[in-house]
Design a protein around this nucleic acid. Structure first.
Length: 402
DNA sequence: TGCAAGTCAATACC
DNA sequence: GGTATTGACTTGCA
């Protein structure tokens, strides 16, 4: 990394925009600003090749990019041209296949990314804008293939040479870490039972004390580090899942998405059940997206306090099993469009700022027709809003079923 | 010191 | 063989 900047987190890059910036960076930034949506076509002009420092400049100075559409486009181009994630990761992003897969499948919204986290998206955007992007990768792929074949040929002949010299045929290759005196630590594979126990412990205590970690590691026969790592990873992945909800639902039709089960905070679950309507009109699909985006918004603003009690958690599985019945019951109980006592002053109010007026979402529903089904949905949405806001003010706990 | 964010890389899965 | 998942690790921050 360059001496005057830090690649990750917290805006440590202390650069003066547009003053010290090298010419290529300025040109690239201008081109990103010009068109924030990814584009690819014959009219694109060749880009200057950005350096590592340029990328960091861009991450710091770039306007907001649409990470979802960037990854969507990248996936499309890679798939259409039969280019693998490994190749793309190696040659374009400087990341491994697993990281590329993760990034493409679960892009974080731009605003949630650290400077370092933004770099791959800058690289993707620049790659998409490069008119020769596919050709370049294809060429590299061909060369790679040839190199592989050459390596294979060499290794075969080397084996034959060894054999002819009387060397053991099972002699380890120099790539083998054991040859270099490095003993590879075998990967820990947690059993389903282990994971179940850890998940249950997480529900009760997402940030376990040292004592809890030790007791869990004893109980499961794992190293304390493994238990701690599991909690770190699980928290991080749960958070990401929450962020995904909005992004994923934008591109997913309700028919593809019968049940949404996600944690809204580290210890709070939301279960959204698709209503059994055979077909949804465009406006109704929009409504589903809207409500999920609202959930996403809320999730980012909800308190991280412990909203579960251990007693409730014991019944979690039962509750999940009986969701359909509960859903009907809850919906019908609240179907009377219950007034929301927190609407006016809640810091995360989703309802109209003017009391008595309908929200944009409500208007949307009214505009799209006044059928009974829509009324039920409106009531259901009221219920969602009401409960989200209750949770935001910590006045209601536990599982939410909509 | 504990945490989040980002990533690697082994393994599972299709 | 390509992609997805996930335990482990590094880095930087508060």
């Amino acid at each position: 990394p360059p001496p005057n900047s830090s690649p990750s987190q917290g805006g440590q890059i202390s650069l003066t925009p547009y003053i010290d910036m090298k010419e290529p960076t300025r040109l690239i930034l201008e081109s990103i600003k010009e068109n924030q949506q990814p584009s690819q076509g014959p009219h694109s002009l060749p880009q200057p090749v950005p350096s590592e420092l340029d990328i960091q400049h861009l991450a710091a100075l770039s306007p907001e990019l649409d990470t979802l559409s960037i990854t969507k486009k990248v996936k499309e181009v890679l798939t259409n041209n039969n280019l693998g994630q490994r190749l793309f990761g190696d040659m374009v992003l400087g990341l491994t296949q697993g990281s590329v897969s993760d990034l493409l499948a679960r892009p974080k919204p731009w605003s949630k990314l650290s400077l370092k986290g933004r770099e791959p998206f800058i690289r993707m955007q620049l790659w998409l804008k490069d008119p020769q992007n596919v050709e370049k990768l294809r060429e590299i792929k061909k060369m790679d293939l040839r190199a592989c074949m050459k390596r294979h040929y060499n290794s075969v002949s080397a084996t034959m040479d060894r054999d002819s010299l009387g060397a053991p045929s099972d002699m380890p290759s120099m790539q083998d870490p054991s040859v270099l005196g490095v003993t590879k630590k075998p990967r820990v594979l947690l059993s389903t039972h282990d994971k179940d126990v850890l998940k249950k412990a997480y529900q009760v205590e997402p940030y376990p004390s040292q004592k809890t970690v030790e007791s869990l590691s004893l109980q499961l026969g794992l190293r304390t580090n493994t238990v701690s790592n599991w909690f770190h990873n699980y928290r991080s992945r749960m958070r990401r899942e929450v962020e995904d909800v909005g992004l994923i639902n934008v591109s997913m039709t309700p028919s593809q998405n019968p049940i949404q089960h996600c944690s809204l905070s580290t210890n709070m679950h939301v279960v959204v059940i698709k209503q059994e309507t055979p077909e949804l009109s465009e406006s109704e699909e929009e409504m589903t997206k809207d409500s999920m985006q609202q959930s996403k918004y809320m999730s980012a603003h909800l308190p991280a306090g412990d909203l579960h009690t251990p007693e409730d958690l014991q019944d979690e599985e039962k509750q999940l099993n009986g969701l359909n019945e509960k859903h009907v019951e809850t919906t019908s109980k609240r179907a009377g469009s219950q007034p929301n006592p927190f609407a006016a002053d809640s810091p995360v109010s989703l309802t109209s700022e003017v009391p008595g007026e309908t929200t944009g979402l409500q208007r949307h529903l009214v505009d799209s027709g006044g059928t009974q089904k829509r009324s039920a949905k409106m009531a259901n949405l009221d219920n969602i809003i009401f409960r989200l806001e209750q949770a935001a003010t910590k006045e209601e706990t536990l599982e939410w079923e909509f």
